[in-house]
Design a protein around this nucleic acid. Structure first.
Length: 471
RNA sequence: GGCACGGUGGCCGAGGAGUUAGGCAAGGGUCUGCAAAACCCUGUACGCCGGUGCAAAUCCGGUCCGUGCCUCCA
């Protein structure tokens, strides 16, 4: 497939560096609170990318990290569980939000089984090793409050800082420099390791005779975990656009300093932000939503997936409740399509229903072009309209099922999970048809309402009634 | 201020020099006891100003607006 690479600012063919497996690392959540829908849209992008890469014939090794130690987690843990030891409080907090995160991820259709999750706190030794190596090679220095990476030294070694975004050459605000409280040599230097402050969780660390008991910096976490799990260079690094600088830039610097190979990850793929009512989500604006909020309004988290897939990952998508309802309607239509699997009938043959199994292939083809999910959704809607108009025949059920699974493999909409209704419900539909035949409208309407209350919707087509799941 | 990404019909959104997606909502119609069903039809849109083309929403230049990043936010 072709994918846009932030490093080169162009579309590139993705083929495994090792010829077999695409190794992909995604910056995961900081588990100090509920993930918001913006985070989720980013992970829907990542999940869909993995699906399409897989469909294009590569095996994919997908790593996602949990940032379970950083300023935010530490602060929140101390606030929530002030009676506990810092380390225990941190674990308690992050375990809670990890669970919620995994639940939300499943709810929006992301395939959790194929992701290997790594935690920062389980890779402290790897991080320390990397810091030690950087120090030994002259790229890190010890300051009062921790260990810093020297961008100066990195540049002097012949490497380029600013491969993703050349921020340092811009006019950085002087105010920032003056307000800087850290004891670092240059404003742009960043912390590799932070020494312990009162009440903070900390790990023993000795470097060059200094006792640096403390915790890792944010950027080093991803460098250490990615190289531990995937080696270096690996194929694709994903994240939201906000991570381009400084996070990913710093990862590149840390991971390539002193290395012969200047490549950390071959391709960086970044998704644009999800906007809410045209604005960036923030707690102060009161437009900060979670998957839980969507569920509370009686809307389906998978409708949120549809909303995300309707937009291209490199453009900003706009979330609003009206738009989510529109997406929910669209999802319902796709589920009506899926429900045909349980209600085949003999109808006049129609050319549109023939090559059912080619449909996922066409979908994959569309998606292989820089993950063009909006085009894919448009195609799917056309297919759905066509098939709903003609139904499917009994001998097509197997092909139809294969088609649904193929669509799900690519888009994660769980269409093949649409189950048959019960015999009782089928009986109610039959009774309604009889009532209609007898023009007993009162009874037929009552039966329709009764079915709707059981989340079974009805479409009266010229060639007969079709039921579909309302949720 | 620097850098980046956008501005498409009521809304969401692709596309990307001539044939002009898709969805949601709306209006009209057919069918119907009804429509909350189905089907048909309708809407000619691409911020603004220039330029290059036979031809521009699509390329180029400028400009305005929005959004993001500029040290730990997906």
């Amino acid at each position: 497939m072709k994918l846009y690479n932030t490093l080169t600012r162009q579309l590139e063919d993705i083929t495994p560096l090792d010829g077999k497996t695409i190794r992909m690392y995604s910056c995961g959540p900081t588990i100090y609170d509920h993930s918001h829908i913006g985070n989720m849209s980013s992970f829907i992008f990542t999940d869909t990318l993995r699906r399409v890469l897989t469909a294009s014939g590569s095996s994919v090794q997908h790593i996602m990290n949990f940032t379970d130690v950083d300023d935010k987690t530490i602060k929140r843990a101390a606030g929530n569980y002030d009676e506990m030891e810092p380390m225990a409080a941190l674990a308690k907090l992050t375990e809670k939000y990890e669970r919620i995160f995994l639940t939300d991820m499943k709810a929006v259709g992301n395939d959790m089984a194929v992701i290997t999750f790594t935690k920062a706190t389980e890779h402290i030794a790897d991080m320390q090793k990397l810091v030690q190596q950087l120090h030994k090679d002259g790229f890190a220095y010890v300051a009062d409050d921790g260990v810093y990476f020297s961008i100066e030294a990195y540049k002097k070694s012949g490497k380029r800082y600013g491969q993703l975004a050349d921020v340092t050459t811009g006019s950085t605000s002087e105010a920032r420099i003056q307000n800087d409280e850290y004891d670092k040599e240059s404003v742009h230097d960043f912390a590799l390791w932070k020494t312990q402050k009162d009440g903070e969780p900390a790990w023993d660390f000795e470097l060059d005779g200094h006792d640096l008991k403390g915790r890792p910096g944010w950027h080093i976490e991803c460098s250490a975990m990615s190289s531990r799990e995937l080696g270096q260079p690996f194929d694709i690094h994903t994240g939201g656009v906000d991570l381009i600088f400084p996070h990913h830039e710093n990862e590149i610097a840390q991971s390539t300093a002193g290395q012969n190979d200047p490549i950390y990850a071959k391709v960086f793929a970044h998704n644009e932000h999800l906007m809410v009512d045209g604005k960036k989500m923030s707690k102060s604006l009161g437009n900060f939503y979670t998957i839980h909020d969507i569920q509370e309004k009686g809307l389906d988290p998978l409708a949120f997936r549809v909303l995300v897939l309707q937009a291209h990952y490199r453009g900003p998508a706009n979330f609003s409740w009206v738009n989510l309802e529109a997406a929910q309607n669209r999802l319902q239509d796709l589920r009506a399509l899926a429900a045909l699997r349980w209600q085949p009938r003999a109808v006049a043959h129609d050319s549109g229903t023939e090559a059912l199994e080619d449909i996922p292939a066409e979908l994959a083809n569309i998606l292989a072009d820089d993950l063009n999910t909006p085009q894919a959704m448009a195609y799917l809607s056309r297919v759905a309209a066509q098939l709903l108009a003609v139904h499917i025949e009994k001998d097509m059920v197997d092909h139809f099922e294969t088609m649904l699974r193929g669509i799900d493999d690519l888009l994660g909409l769980n269409l093949s999970a649409v189950q048959d209704i019960t015999d009782e419900q089928k009986e109610l539909i039959a009774q309604r048809e009889q009532a209609r035949a007898k023009k007993d409208w009162q009874s037929s309407d009552k039966l329709r309402d009764q079915l709707a209350a059981q989340d079974v919707g009805l479409q009266d087509h010229p060639h007969g009634v079709i039921w579909f799941p309302l949720r």
